[in-house]
Nucleic acid binder design. Structure first.
Lengths: 143, 143
DNA sequence: ATAATAATGCAATAGAGTTGCAATAACGGT
DNA sequence: ACCGTTATTGCAACTCTATTGCATTATTAT
């Protein structure tokens, strides 16, 4: 049998129906180094007859099924990105979000963050379950 | 001379004109353990004739003059909080944001975060200038 | 090929935050 | 204590992101 393209494999693997919309959006996410907003994705696929509501729902579906994750941008929009992939093609749960102070793009950097978050010393009653690193600075494009 | 109240002192100290609106908002922020949204602040001061636009602008002013800082909430709204204060009454720049998975409230915890952020290993060209820790879990109110 | 079910498109709506402008208040100088 | 300058405030209208309801269409297991 022929090897199906990667997006299609991924959708089946996660038990999602394969639709042209999902393939389209997945391709866009796979080929981006940065997390993308709804608007940015729309621009990249303009021409295709994909409704904005469907795009929102498609992205939500990806997040719900843990194909992608979403990050709140500095200007209070959601940005979407696939999970960073290891050298071994396995998903890394630990990564940092790098926010460029100039272009405002957000990158997912595969940083080892486990066990590096210091627990609050004098704060009682706070139980930490997960964490997010947000790094601010200048990205390679902007200097 | 009489000791002016703390909010007024703070405003003068930062070179801002003292207005009843600013005093009001500052008092609300000072008496809250969590970062507050525009809507939450409005609720706490309902009755006073303070327009929503003025509230936005007041909060922006506080942020611009570094009296307060703003955090993006999980549902993509801005939350506002004063900077955590030391035992010595000096402002701490390093603190973590603790987000409760149940009540969604965000607390500023005075955690020592300096020098604990691991730099990306294999990622070249990213210059880190500041960072934000976001801790997720359960707050004291919710268990 | 067909039925069951999920995905999609469209219209209307919600909600946070912003802009322009005229009215008002704060405050340094007199 | 008053006055003029300048910043702050309130109001109306608006922008933009995202959501909801519902009828239509497409996908997939059988």
């Amino acid at each position: 049998m022929f090897e199906k393209n990667k997006s299609e494999q991924l959708l089946r693997q996660y038990g999602l129906k394969v639709t042209s919309n999902r393939l389209l959006v997945l391709d866009v996410l796979m080929s981006s180094r940065t997390a993308l907003s709804h608007g940015e994705i729309q621009k990249k696929i303009q021409g295709s007859r994909l409704d904005k509501v469907t795009l929102y729902r498609t992205l939500d579906t990806f997040v719900k099924h843990d194909i992608a994750h979403k990050v709140a941008s500095e200007d209070r929009n959601w940005l979407y990105a696939l999970h960073p992939i290891d050298e071994n093609d396995s998903v890394r749960n630990d990564h940092a979000h790098f926010i460029c102070d100039y272009c405002e793009r957000i990158y997912c950097l595969p940083v080892e963050t486990r066990n590096t978050v210091p627990l609050p010393e004098s704060e009682e009653g706070f139980v930490i379950r997960t964490h997010e690193y947000r790094l601010h600075g200048v990205c390679p494009q902007c200097h």
